[in-house]
Simulated assay, not measured.
Amino acid sequence: MILVFGKSGQVARELSVLDGVKCLGRDEADYNDPTACAEIVATTTASAIINAVAYTAVDNAETDEETARIVNGNTPAAMAQAAAARGIPFVHISTDYVFEGNGDKPWKTNDPVNPQNAYGRTKLLGENGVRDAGGPHAILRTSWVVSAHGNNFVKTMLRLGEARDALTIVADQFGGPTGAREIAAACHSIAHQLVKDTSKSGTYHFSGAPDVSWADFAIAIFAKSGLTCSVTGIPSSDYPSPAARPLNSRLDCETTLSTFAISRPDWSRTLTHILADLEHQ
């Protein structure tokens, strides 16, 4: 059995339907209490742990960094320490926001980190805590998570596209839209592989392909959904936000393929599945 921290988030909801998975919601695990979460790990009969919990309100983290630090940093570190003490593999989902976000080359797993906002800083704290715990682990950095659940870019574009004839969308931020379903499947596979071979421990990247701008992704969403909404690309400077966003969220995913035989998913296919799921909701 794989124990998942998280139940209502995009990735956790996709993990909950996979075989041999038990998901813990906030009523069973207080993510704001690192000690309590570590105690759950210390007493579980699970063969592996997946942490799918995160404080993901990027802009809110600028003024509530303490809460983000606990959820994204202290709690994963405490859980990883408890898992390491028992030799249980710990899979942790992280983000491209740990990088500076400049340039145009895909970030490699060993590139220097330099987060530009509170969310990125707290996620990096969690990464370091998981590594420092010293147990079998995989840190999976991903980007631009989308699904039929929760709040994400696809659902926002569909809502706005139905209400408006034209939109202005940021065109100078590039990354790989990644389905929560595909992230869940990757974490599930990585957890099982770590149980059999702990030498695969390390930091990995996973994002959808090909890399695209937000504006071009929006155009694809409207084309596939049949909405007639025109898109005009704008620079990030025309859409200011409390937290700085990376211009370059491209991720080099080669080591994930070579180590776990998990390739980058085609986000166009992901988008098709999301639209189909939304039709049946």
Rank of each mutant, 00 (worst) to 15 (best):
A218K: 02
G233L: 03
G103H: 11
R26E: 11
W107P: 10
V212T: 15
A244L: 15
V154I: 11
T232Y: 01
N72A: 00
D172N: 11
G208A: 04
A184Y: 03
R141H: 09
V195I: 09
E279H: 10
R13M: 05
T67L: 01
E28N: 00
G87V: 08
G120P: 09
R69M: 07
S199Q: 13
S47L: 03
I262F: 07
F153I: 04
I190Q: 09
I183L: 01
C23M: 03
R86Y: 09
P89S: 10
I88N: 07
T198L: 11
A57M: 07
H280T: 12
V71W: 03
P112C: 13
R131N: 08
F99G: 08
H188L: 06
L194K: 03
V212W: 04
K224M: 04
N152M: 07
K22P: 00
A166Y: 09
V17A: 04
E100N: 00
T270Y: 00
Y239F: 14
T178Q: 04
L271V: 01
P106M: 07
D111F: 14
T35W: 15
A133C: 04
D132T: 07
S263Y: 06
S47Y: 04
I40V: 13
I50C: 12
A218Q: 00
P136R: 14
L18F: 13
A244F: 08
H137M: 08
A191C: 15
S201E: 09
A57F: 08
T272L: 02
S230V: 15
N114M: 03
